[in-house]
């Protein structure tokens, strides 16, 4: 699958409290969660984000709370991919489980600036900065993770295995 979009760029330790503040966790509505995504770190994000756009961040993206509402809000806001130097472990797991593509690629993070247009072939992990023309290769997922993503998330993956 290929994705392409404009980049929103953030720094280190973007925590799940700024991705989706707890004051909005009294709902499970994806659209409502998306309407407050990144609000405490970037109040213009919701206004400016378009379907397909990409978030690029530095170290430890998604640290803090285990709230699955964080990757849900990002995905529902239209973001097609998050690229970071590293992810916090619960956020990483949650993203796979709900089908939000995420890639670790420090070289790409270094090169990409806010507003650049970036494309990525998720099956190969090849990231292209269309603005600078440079390309990068992220480590692809191990096969068992790829299988969960291919099945459409963890619940569908389990359903498939239960039927076996």
């Amino acid at each position: 699958m290929k994705v392409q979009g404009r980049v929103f760029k953030y720094g280190n330790d973007v925590d799940t409290d700024v991705i989706i503040p707890a004051r909005y966790l009294n709902t499970t509505s994806e659209a409502e969660l998306a309407s407050h995504c990144m609000e405490d770190i970037d109040k213009d994000f919701v206004k400016n984000v378009q379907k397909g756009d990409i978030i690029v961040a530095a170290d430890n993206f998604g640290c803090g709370s285990s709230r699955e509402h964080a990757p849900i809000a990002i995905k529902a806001s239209g973001i097609s991919l998050v690229i970071a130097n590293s992810f916090a472990r619960i956020f990483y797991r949650n993203s796979i489980n709900i089908g939000l593509p995420i890639l670790e690629c420090p070289e790409a993070v270094k090169d990409i600036s806010a507003g650049d247009t970036v494309s990525c072939d998720l099956s190969t992990g090849i990231i292209v900065n269309e603005t600078t023309g440079k390309s990068f290769k992220a480590e692809p997922f191990p096969p068992f993770i790829q299988e969960i993503i291919d099945d459409g998330g963890l619940m569908k993956h389990i359903q498939k295995n239960l039927k076996k």
Binding site: E68, I90, N94, N97, G153, L154, M155
Partner: peptide, 17 residues
Amino acid sequence: GVGSTDMAAGMMTGNAW
């Protein structure tokens, strides 16, 4: 700690990866 989907899978199967 895990997310809600992992928790749901744990309730369904009694297992986790």
